[in-house]
Design a protein around this nucleic acid. Structure first.
Length: 594
RNA sequence: GGGGACGUAGUUCAGCUGGUUAGAACGCAUGCCUGUCACGCAUGAGGUCGCGGGUUCGAGUCCCGUCGUCCCCGCCA
């Protein structure tokens, strides 16, 4: 096939631009052939670019040359068209596309490139499995839907940079080739050619660098930055992902929250969502107690309450008190099998006692009636203000199995039940955008396997100042100056006020069973820096991919990353990771086992 | 690391209790067609049933293993 040269021709319009007002103009369009409809001496081409589609008419009577070429054209061929914009006859207007009132009468058709038949149609709605889409990602991204997402992401990046800069934050780049840090996720390693046996690590986040920038006097820093974590992946987790990383010196938490809330307002305005400010704040302990989650969805009004049984009833049931009760308004009609499914869910989440109460008019029914008596059941129902027509769910632990871990599992189970009820009762209204701050996280969590405390956030998080004297005596009770940003039950960011004093940092390392030697080996440079005039500082990191996914209404961040990897961290398009030449290994001083 | 779902034509799927030559739709190719826009009509090509082993007279179908994709748990400060 003979192809044409573009020469010095320039596009005069995009395909989605043309309207009635352009009628009579001679235009030059270029793009991909979305569809060809061949009626013999009349051929219609749907010409597509990132802005939309315009119909091109190739009429043998108007231009035999253009018509000849149109006969050669196939799906996804790249063509240029010169011709006149003409109004369509009223009965041939296509109301489905914005440019549907006009069409371009082709005078010249340039065949710029041919194309193999694509493995899937280049359309918004396709049924193709994700594997195929990822293998041919360049074609997948050609779809209008993906172009919209890519462009939304671009506008979001611009909004972040504008907003942060306007608030005195400067973007500073930090190294991708750095050193491995303890704790946290597994690192991706890069072997050094010059120093055999030594490795760079790709950063899990620029945590230390942003703190060093505070020590350096940068005052307010941000960066839209790639982070790398070598753990198992999910719909909302990738091997490499993008954070909006933020840090400020002399921080007041409320000032930081305000900057972030305004940022969210600007970002969601891009998708015409009005964000309510200020965002509510919830203590971690309250979140766990009432919602059974450290990232609760507050877009629906269900909350657990700790309630006590009347005297003596607890002993009859052999369960822990207080137990947890949840009033489900208007679901007295729940069927036996529906309740059984909820009980299964509770059990699957290791809550070891589940029951319920139905309030129907003046009558109250519960499997507990026979065991603890109707009066006690009524008292329970009253303690959560259950009204006629309501259902009350109850969960607890066997009194013999109450441990810290069991209590955490009970909270987690109550959280799962709450979410399941929201799904089943369709309590989450479309268009709900429920932001919230979760604050006052525990400083440490006990690692059963390692038999030591680990940092819940990271080891540079400051304890609350009023808790400092309990650092050694009661670390489990310590609260950190850490916070998470939650949207509709998804964690979209987290941060903390950091430790800026070297003496406190040493005490925290100590509580984490990190010996001075180990600490010095791992980040001696950082401890030195801490002694060099560190201002109070703190910040946050926002999950950019997750935020874009929520804005775009996508449930997987793969949909908003141009070239994502699979759950096993494989790039199906370029087939990475891959083996390398033996010479390359030799240079690096590496050999592969087996 | 564990659990679940899926894997058949380029794509999306059907394929019963194991039984002749593995089907459909869309797409693709060729021809006809001047107002289509999911064009239409006619004809046709296209299959390592993910891969390997086993059972059987016979396997897309049953069994074992393995690979891949997705979802969940663990993990991810």
């Amino acid at each position: 096939m003979k192809l044409d040269l573009l020469g010095d021709r320039q596009r005069t319009h995009f395909c989605g631009d043309l309207r009635q007002s352009h009628a009579g103009q001679t235009v030059f369009l270029a793009g991909w052939v979305a569809r060809r409809r061949d009626l013999g001496n009349l051929i219609f081409l749907d010409l597509r670019d990132h802005t939309g589609i315009t119909q091109v008419v190739c009429n043998r009577e108007v231009s035999p040359e253009a018509h000849d070429k149109a006969e050669e054209v196939r799906a996804e061929y790249v063509v240029g068209v010169e011709g006149e914009v003409v109004l369509r006859a009223p009965d041939t207007v296509n109301a489905q596309i914005p440019a549907g009132e006009v069409e371009v009468k082709a005078k010249t058709l340039l065949l710029l490139n041919e194309a193999k038949t694509p493995p899937f149609p280049i359309e918004d709605e396709i049924k193709t499995v994700e594997e195929t889409r990822l293998r041919y990602r360049y074609l997948d991204l050609r779809r209008g839907k993906m172009q919209k997402i890519i462009r939304l992401r671009h506008r979001a990046s611009l909004a972040v940079r504008e907003h942060m800069s306007a608030n005195g934050f400067i973007e500073v780049e930090t190294p991708f080739m750095t050193r491995s840090t303890p704790e946290g996720a597994r690192d991706f390693l890069v072997p050094s050619r010059i120093h055999h046996g030594h490795f760079y690590a790709l950063p899990q986040s620029p945590q230390l660098f942003k703190q060093l920038l505070m020590i350096a006097g940068c005052d307010r820093y941000f960066q839209i930055v790639r982070c790398f974590r070598d753990e198992d992946f999910r719909a909302d987790r990738q091997a490499e992902f993008t954070q909006i990383d933020i840090e400020m010196a002399f921080p007041q938490r409320d000032v930081l929250f305000d900057v972030i809330e305004q940022l969210m307002e600007k970002l969601f305005a891009l998708v015409d969502v009005k964000v309510d400010r200020p965002f509510p704040r919830l203590a971690y302990d309250t979140a766990m107690e009432k919602y059974g989650s450290d990232k609760p969805h507050l877009g629906f009004d269900l909350a657990w309450k700790r309630v006590n049984l009347p005297d003596g009833a607890g002993e009859k049931l052999h369960i822990m008190q207080p137990l947890k009760a949840l009033r489900v308004p208007g679901w007295e009609s729940a069927s036996r099998s529906q309740l059984d499914k909820l009980q299964d869910l509770a059990r699957a989440n290791l809550a070891d006692w589940f029951s319920y109460i139905k309030v129907s008019g003046n009558e109250i029914h519960s499997p507990l009636d026979k065991i603890i008596g109707g009066e006690a059941v009524r008292a329970l129902a009253n303690s959560v203000e259950a009204a006629a027509g309501d259902l009350v769910l109850l969960v607890s632990l066997k009194s013999s199995s109450v441990t810290r871990q069991a209590l955490q599992r009970l909270d987690a189970a109550s959280g799962e039940l709450r979410l399941e009820l929201a799904r089943r009762r369709e309590l989450i209204k479309p268009g709900t955008w429920s932001f919230l701050w979760v604050v006052d996280f525990p400083m440490f969590e006990y690692d059963e396997k390692e038999k030591r405390f680990g940092a819940m956030h990271h080891p540079f998080t400051s304890p609350r100042e009023e808790d400092l004297d309990k650092l050694e005596s009661d670390p489990a009770s310590l609260k950190a100056r850490a916070y998470d940003l939650v949207l509709n039950g998804s964690e979209i960011g987290g941060g903390s006020i950091r430790i800026h004093r070297q003496d406190i940092q040493k005490r925290v390392f100590d509580a984490l069973s990190l010996t001075p030697e180990k600490a010095r080996e791992r980040f001696g440079f950082f401890l030195d820096a801490l002694e060099s005039g560190t201002p109070p500082h703190g910040g946050i990191a926002l999950g950019f991919d997750r935020i874009i996914a929520l804005m775009a209404g996508e449930s997987s961040i793969r949909e908003v990353i141009a070239f994502p990897k699979t759950a096993s961290a494989v790039d199906l398009m370029c087939d990475a990771p891959a083996t390398v030449d033996p010479e390359q290994l030799e240079e690096l001083g590496l050999s592969i086992k087996n």
